[in-house]
Amino acid sequence: MALLNFRKKTEGPIGASADVVAFLEGYSIEVMPRTAAKVENFRDLLPEGTRVYIAHIEGTPIEEMVATAKRLADEGYPVMPHFPARIIKDKATLENWIAMYQGEAGVKQALLLAGGVDTPHGDFDSSMQLLETGAFDKAGFTNLHVAGHPEGNKDIDPDGSMANVMDALRWKQKFSETTDAKMALATQFAFDAKPIIAWADSLKDAGIDLPIHIGIAGPAKLQTLIKFAIACGVGPSLKVLQKRAMDVSKLLLPYEPTDVIAELAAHKAANPDFNIEKVHFFPLGGIKTNATWAIENGGSSTTPANAS
Protein backbone atom coordinates (compact mmCIF):
# COMPACT_ATOMS: atom_id res chain seq x y z
CA MET A 1 0.00 0.00 0.00
CA ALA A 2 3.02 2.32 0.24
CA LEU A 3 2.74 3.22 -3.44
CA LEU A 4 -0.95 4.06 -3.11
CA ASN A 5 -0.43 6.14 0.04
CA PHE A 6 2.34 8.07 -1.75
CA ARG A 7 0.07 8.68 -4.72
CA LYS A 8 -2.61 10.14 -2.44
CA LYS A 9 -0.15 12.73 -1.17
CA THR A 10 0.70 13.92 -4.66
CA GLU A 11 -1.43 15.95 -7.02
CA GLY A 12 -0.88 13.61 -9.94
CA PRO A 13 1.43 11.04 -11.47
CA ILE A 14 5.09 11.96 -11.53
CA GLY A 15 6.31 12.82 -15.02
CA ALA A 16 3.00 12.13 -16.75
CA SER A 17 1.43 14.82 -18.90
CA ALA A 18 -2.21 15.84 -18.80
CA ASP A 19 -2.53 14.28 -22.27
CA VAL A 20 -1.38 10.89 -20.95
CA VAL A 21 -3.67 11.11 -17.94
CA ALA A 22 -6.64 11.79 -20.23
CA PHE A 23 -5.61 9.05 -22.67
CA LEU A 24 -5.41 6.37 -19.96
CA GLU A 25 -8.79 7.16 -18.47
CA GLY A 26 -11.13 4.19 -18.82
CA TYR A 27 -8.43 1.77 -19.96
CA SER A 28 -9.19 -1.95 -20.18
CA ILE A 29 -7.00 -4.95 -19.45
CA GLU A 30 -6.82 -8.59 -20.51
CA VAL A 31 -6.52 -11.62 -18.24
CA MET A 32 -6.65 -15.39 -18.53
CA PRO A 33 -8.08 -17.75 -15.90
CA ARG A 34 -4.59 -18.81 -14.80
CA THR A 35 -3.28 -15.24 -14.55
CA ALA A 36 -6.43 -13.99 -12.82
CA ALA A 37 -6.04 -16.76 -10.22
CA LYS A 38 -2.75 -15.16 -9.11
CA VAL A 39 -4.53 -11.91 -8.17
CA GLU A 40 -5.91 -11.92 -4.64
CA ASN A 41 -8.27 -9.01 -5.17
CA PHE A 42 -8.62 -7.02 -8.40
CA ARG A 43 -10.04 -4.10 -6.45
CA ASP A 44 -6.56 -3.54 -5.02
CA LEU A 45 -5.23 -3.02 -8.56
CA LEU A 46 -7.91 -1.78 -10.95
CA PRO A 47 -10.14 1.30 -10.94
CA GLU A 48 -13.85 0.92 -10.39
CA GLY A 49 -15.62 -0.12 -13.58
CA THR A 50 -12.53 -1.23 -15.52
CA ARG A 51 -13.51 -3.50 -18.40
CA VAL A 52 -11.67 -6.82 -18.10
CA TYR A 53 -11.31 -8.97 -21.19
CA ILE A 54 -10.91 -12.71 -20.54
CA ALA A 55 -8.74 -14.39 -23.17
CA HIS A 56 -9.89 -17.86 -24.20
CA ILE A 57 -6.90 -19.98 -25.15
CA GLU A 58 -7.48 -23.29 -26.92
CA GLY A 59 -7.78 -26.06 -24.36
CA THR A 60 -9.19 -23.88 -21.58
CA PRO A 61 -12.47 -25.44 -20.37
CA ILE A 62 -15.44 -23.12 -20.72
CA GLU A 63 -16.19 -23.75 -17.04
CA GLU A 64 -12.89 -22.06 -16.08
CA MET A 65 -13.70 -19.11 -18.31
CA VAL A 66 -17.14 -18.70 -16.77
CA ALA A 67 -15.80 -19.05 -13.21
CA THR A 68 -13.27 -16.29 -13.91
CA ALA A 69 -16.00 -14.09 -15.36
CA LYS A 70 -18.16 -14.65 -12.28
CA ARG A 71 -15.31 -13.87 -9.91
CA LEU A 72 -14.56 -10.58 -11.71
CA ALA A 73 -18.22 -9.62 -11.95
CA ASP A 74 -18.63 -10.31 -8.23
CA GLU A 75 -15.73 -7.92 -7.57
CA GLY A 76 -17.58 -5.26 -9.54
CA TYR A 77 -15.93 -5.37 -12.96
CA PRO A 78 -17.66 -5.58 -16.35
CA VAL A 79 -16.22 -8.57 -18.15
CA MET A 80 -15.74 -9.10 -21.88
CA PRO A 81 -14.86 -12.74 -22.62
CA HIS A 82 -13.27 -13.77 -25.89
CA PHE A 83 -15.35 -15.85 -28.30
CA PRO A 84 -12.76 -17.43 -30.66
CA ALA A 85 -14.70 -18.65 -33.70
CA ARG A 86 -12.41 -21.53 -34.62
CA ILE A 87 -12.72 -23.31 -31.28
CA ILE A 88 -16.51 -23.07 -31.14
CA LYS A 89 -18.01 -26.21 -32.63
CA ASP A 90 -21.41 -24.96 -33.77
CA LYS A 91 -24.25 -22.53 -33.08
CA ALA A 92 -25.61 -24.69 -30.25
CA THR A 93 -22.22 -24.53 -28.51
CA LEU A 94 -22.09 -20.78 -29.02
CA GLU A 95 -25.55 -20.31 -27.54
CA ASN A 96 -24.63 -22.57 -24.61
CA TRP A 97 -21.52 -20.50 -23.87
CA ILE A 98 -23.57 -17.31 -23.98
CA ALA A 99 -26.17 -18.81 -21.63
CA MET A 100 -23.46 -19.94 -19.19
CA TYR A 101 -21.79 -16.54 -19.14
CA GLN A 102 -25.06 -14.72 -18.69
CA GLY A 103 -26.46 -17.13 -16.13
CA GLU A 104 -23.35 -17.10 -13.93
CA ALA A 105 -21.84 -13.66 -14.50
CA GLY A 106 -24.47 -11.50 -16.22
CA VAL A 107 -22.18 -11.01 -19.23
CA LYS A 108 -23.43 -8.55 -21.86
CA GLN A 109 -20.14 -7.88 -23.70
CA ALA A 110 -17.93 -9.98 -25.96
CA LEU A 111 -14.79 -9.82 -28.07
CA LEU A 112 -15.29 -11.85 -31.22
CA LEU A 113 -12.24 -13.04 -33.13
CA ALA A 114 -11.16 -15.85 -35.41
CA GLY A 115 -8.88 -17.41 -32.82
CA GLY A 116 -5.33 -18.64 -32.92
CA VAL A 117 -5.85 -22.16 -34.28
CA ASP A 118 -5.18 -23.12 -37.90
CA THR A 119 -7.96 -25.69 -38.30
CA PRO A 120 -11.48 -24.82 -37.12
CA HIS A 121 -12.99 -27.22 -34.60
CA GLY A 122 -16.37 -26.96 -36.26
CA ASP A 123 -18.61 -24.67 -38.28
CA PHE A 124 -16.96 -21.29 -37.67
CA ASP A 125 -13.86 -19.78 -39.22
CA SER A 126 -14.28 -16.05 -38.56
CA SER A 127 -15.84 -13.52 -36.22
CA MET A 128 -18.15 -12.49 -39.05
CA GLN A 129 -19.75 -15.93 -39.00
CA LEU A 130 -20.35 -15.59 -35.26
CA LEU A 131 -22.03 -12.22 -35.81
CA GLU A 132 -24.19 -13.65 -38.59
CA THR A 133 -25.75 -16.19 -36.20
CA GLY A 134 -27.61 -13.37 -34.48
CA ALA A 135 -26.97 -15.10 -31.15
CA PHE A 136 -25.45 -12.04 -29.48
CA ASP A 137 -28.26 -9.71 -30.51
CA LYS A 138 -30.82 -12.29 -29.40
CA ALA A 139 -29.14 -12.43 -25.99
CA GLY A 140 -29.17 -8.63 -25.68
CA PHE A 141 -25.43 -7.98 -25.74
CA THR A 142 -24.67 -4.27 -25.35
CA ASN A 143 -21.05 -4.26 -26.58
CA LEU A 144 -19.42 -6.34 -29.30
CA HIS A 145 -15.76 -5.84 -30.10
CA VAL A 146 -13.90 -7.30 -33.06
CA ALA A 147 -10.21 -7.57 -33.79
CA GLY A 148 -8.07 -4.90 -35.41
CA HIS A 149 -4.52 -5.28 -36.72
CA PRO A 150 -2.59 -2.00 -37.09
CA GLU A 151 0.35 -3.81 -38.66
CA GLY A 152 -1.61 -6.34 -40.70
CA ASN A 153 -2.38 -10.01 -40.16
CA LYS A 154 -0.33 -12.53 -42.12
CA ASP A 155 -2.87 -15.27 -41.39
CA ILE A 156 -5.41 -13.32 -43.44
CA ASP A 157 -3.12 -11.45 -45.84
CA PRO A 158 0.06 -13.51 -46.35
CA ASP A 159 1.31 -10.97 -48.88
CA GLY A 160 1.13 -8.17 -46.30
CA SER A 161 -1.32 -6.16 -48.41
CA MET A 162 -4.08 -5.80 -45.77
CA ALA A 163 -6.63 -6.24 -48.59
CA ASN A 164 -8.60 -9.04 -46.92
CA VAL A 165 -8.37 -7.38 -43.53
CA MET A 166 -9.85 -4.18 -44.95
CA ASP A 167 -12.65 -6.10 -46.68
CA ALA A 168 -13.50 -7.72 -43.34
CA LEU A 169 -13.50 -4.35 -41.59
CA ARG A 170 -15.86 -2.90 -44.19
CA TRP A 171 -18.20 -5.84 -43.56
CA LYS A 172 -18.05 -5.24 -39.81
CA GLN A 173 -18.68 -1.55 -40.32
CA LYS A 174 -21.89 -2.38 -42.21
CA PHE A 175 -22.89 -4.90 -39.55
CA SER A 176 -22.45 -2.25 -36.85
CA GLU A 177 -25.23 -0.29 -38.54
CA THR A 178 -27.69 -3.19 -38.11
CA THR A 179 -27.01 -4.32 -34.54
CA ASP A 180 -28.23 -2.72 -31.32
CA ALA A 181 -24.87 -3.43 -29.71
CA LYS A 182 -22.13 -0.81 -29.63
CA MET A 183 -19.24 -2.10 -31.74
CA ALA A 184 -15.55 -1.24 -31.59
CA LEU A 185 -12.16 -2.55 -32.68
CA ALA A 186 -9.81 -4.03 -30.09
CA THR A 187 -6.37 -4.27 -31.64
CA GLN A 188 -3.25 -6.35 -31.47
CA PHE A 189 -0.48 -4.63 -29.51
CA ALA A 190 2.22 -2.55 -31.18
CA PHE A 191 5.26 -0.64 -29.94
CA ASP A 192 5.49 2.34 -32.27
CA ALA A 193 2.89 5.11 -32.45
CA LYS A 194 3.54 6.08 -36.07
CA PRO A 195 2.21 2.89 -37.74
CA ILE A 196 -0.77 2.99 -35.36
CA ILE A 197 -1.62 6.57 -36.30
CA ALA A 198 -1.23 5.86 -40.02
CA TRP A 199 -3.48 2.79 -39.74
CA ALA A 200 -6.18 4.60 -37.79
CA ASP A 201 -6.18 7.43 -40.34
CA SER A 202 -6.40 4.90 -43.21
CA LEU A 203 -9.54 3.40 -41.66
CA LYS A 204 -11.17 6.79 -41.46
CA ASP A 205 -10.26 7.47 -45.09
CA ALA A 206 -11.90 4.14 -46.01
CA GLY A 207 -15.13 5.13 -44.27
CA ILE A 208 -14.59 2.86 -41.27
CA ASP A 209 -15.42 4.82 -38.15
CA LEU A 210 -15.65 2.07 -35.55
CA PRO A 211 -14.02 3.33 -32.33
CA ILE A 212 -10.55 1.89 -31.74
CA HIS A 213 -9.41 0.43 -28.43
CA ILE A 214 -5.69 0.33 -29.07
CA GLY A 215 -3.70 -2.64 -27.85
CA ILE A 216 -0.64 -1.75 -25.78
CA ALA A 217 1.80 -4.21 -24.23
CA GLY A 218 2.28 -3.50 -20.55
CA PRO A 219 5.65 -3.39 -18.80
CA ALA A 220 7.65 -6.61 -19.18
CA LYS A 221 11.13 -7.98 -19.66
CA LEU A 222 12.43 -7.20 -23.12
CA GLN A 223 13.01 -10.88 -23.93
CA THR A 224 9.40 -11.67 -22.98
CA LEU A 225 8.02 -8.97 -25.25
CA ILE A 226 10.14 -9.98 -28.22
CA LYS A 227 8.94 -13.57 -27.83
CA PHE A 228 5.27 -12.54 -27.74
CA ALA A 229 5.72 -10.02 -30.55
CA ILE A 230 7.16 -12.63 -32.90
CA ALA A 231 4.51 -15.19 -31.93
CA CYS A 232 1.69 -12.68 -32.50
CA GLY A 233 3.02 -11.41 -35.82
CA VAL A 234 3.74 -7.85 -34.74
CA GLY A 235 5.13 -6.02 -37.76
CA PRO A 236 7.17 -2.84 -38.26
CA SER A 237 7.06 -1.71 -34.63
CA LEU A 238 8.99 -4.82 -33.57
CA LYS A 239 12.04 -2.79 -34.65
CA VAL A 240 11.50 -0.63 -31.55
CA LEU A 241 12.23 -3.66 -29.37
CA GLN A 242 15.09 -4.87 -31.55
CA LYS A 243 16.75 -1.46 -31.38
CA ARG A 244 16.36 -1.45 -27.62
CA ALA A 245 17.89 -4.93 -27.41
CA MET A 246 21.02 -3.58 -29.13
CA ASP A 247 21.46 -0.89 -26.48
CA VAL A 248 23.47 -2.53 -23.70
CA SER A 249 22.38 0.15 -21.22
CA LYS A 250 18.71 -0.78 -21.75
CA LEU A 251 18.99 -4.50 -22.43
CA LEU A 252 18.40 -5.59 -18.84
CA LEU A 253 15.82 -2.90 -18.01
CA PRO A 254 12.13 -3.77 -18.32
CA TYR A 255 10.25 -2.28 -21.23
CA GLU A 256 7.55 0.24 -20.35
CA PRO A 257 4.97 1.65 -22.78
CA THR A 258 5.71 5.22 -21.75
CA ASP A 259 6.93 6.48 -25.13
CA VAL A 260 4.22 4.96 -27.33
CA ILE A 261 1.48 6.06 -24.91
CA ALA A 262 2.89 9.59 -24.72
CA GLU A 263 3.06 9.95 -28.51
CA LEU A 264 -0.46 8.61 -29.05
CA ALA A 265 -1.81 10.78 -26.25
CA ALA A 266 -0.21 13.91 -27.71
CA HIS A 267 -1.62 13.09 -31.15
CA LYS A 268 -5.07 12.53 -29.66
CA ALA A 269 -4.93 15.84 -27.81
CA ALA A 270 -3.90 17.69 -30.98
CA ASN A 271 -6.50 15.88 -33.11
CA PRO A 272 -9.72 15.52 -31.08
CA ASP A 273 -11.44 13.58 -33.87
CA PHE A 274 -8.69 10.92 -33.84
CA ASN A 275 -10.62 7.66 -33.66
CA ILE A 276 -8.66 5.89 -30.92
CA GLU A 277 -11.10 5.90 -28.02
CA LYS A 278 -9.44 3.83 -25.29
CA VAL A 279 -6.25 1.98 -24.33
CA HIS A 280 -6.40 -1.79 -23.96
CA PHE A 281 -3.52 -3.35 -22.04
CA PHE A 282 -1.96 -6.75 -22.63
CA PRO A 283 -0.26 -7.37 -19.25
CA LEU A 284 2.55 -9.50 -20.65
CA GLY A 285 4.74 -8.80 -17.63
CA GLY A 286 1.99 -9.52 -15.12
CA ILE A 287 -1.31 -7.92 -14.12
CA LYS A 288 0.07 -6.31 -10.96
CA THR A 289 3.05 -4.84 -12.85
CA ASN A 290 0.76 -3.40 -15.52
CA ALA A 291 -1.75 -2.01 -13.04
CA THR A 292 1.03 -0.40 -11.00
CA TRP A 293 2.39 1.34 -14.11
CA ALA A 294 -1.10 2.66 -14.87
CA ILE A 295 -1.50 3.88 -11.29
CA GLU A 296 1.81 5.74 -11.51
CA ASN A 297 0.98 7.37 -14.84
CA GLY A 298 -2.77 7.78 -15.01
CA GLY A 299 -3.87 10.19 -12.31
CA SER A 300 -7.01 9.81 -10.23
CA SER A 301 -8.89 7.84 -12.90
CA THR A 302 -6.50 4.90 -12.51
CA THR A 303 -6.69 4.76 -8.71
CA PRO A 304 -7.74 1.25 -7.62
CA ALA A 305 -11.27 0.76 -6.35
CA ASN A 306 -10.10 -0.08 -2.81
CA ALA A 307 -7.98 3.08 -2.63
CA SER A 308 -10.59 5.51 -3.91
Rank of each mutant, 00 (worst) to 15 (best):
F175E: 14
A67S: 14
G299I: 04
W199R: 01
A105D: 13
H82K: 07
T179E: 05
M32N: 11
A294C: 15
L130E: 05
A262S: 15
L253I: 09
M65Y: 11
K89A: 14
A217V: 04
K9C: 08
G218C: 05
E25R: 00
S17R: 06
N297L: 01
D247H: 13
L112T: 05
A206H: 03
A266C: 06
G59Q: 12
G218K: 04
A307L: 06
I226P: 03
D123K: 13
A266Y: 05
Y77R: 08
W293N: 01
L222W: 06
I212P: 04
P272H: 06
I295W: 10
P84C: 02
E256N: 07
F228T: 09
K243Q: 15
T303Q: 11
A92M: 08
P283H: 06
D157T: 01
V66C: 09
I214Y: 01
E11K: 13
P13R: 01
T93F: 09
T289F: 10
K38G: 07
L94M: 04
F124Q: 02
A114D: 07
P78L: 01
T187Q: 01
G286A: 08
P120A: 03
P219H: 07
A73F: 04
N5K: 12
I29N: 02
L46N: 07
A22L: 02
T302A: 02
A307K: 12
A266T: 12
A307I: 05
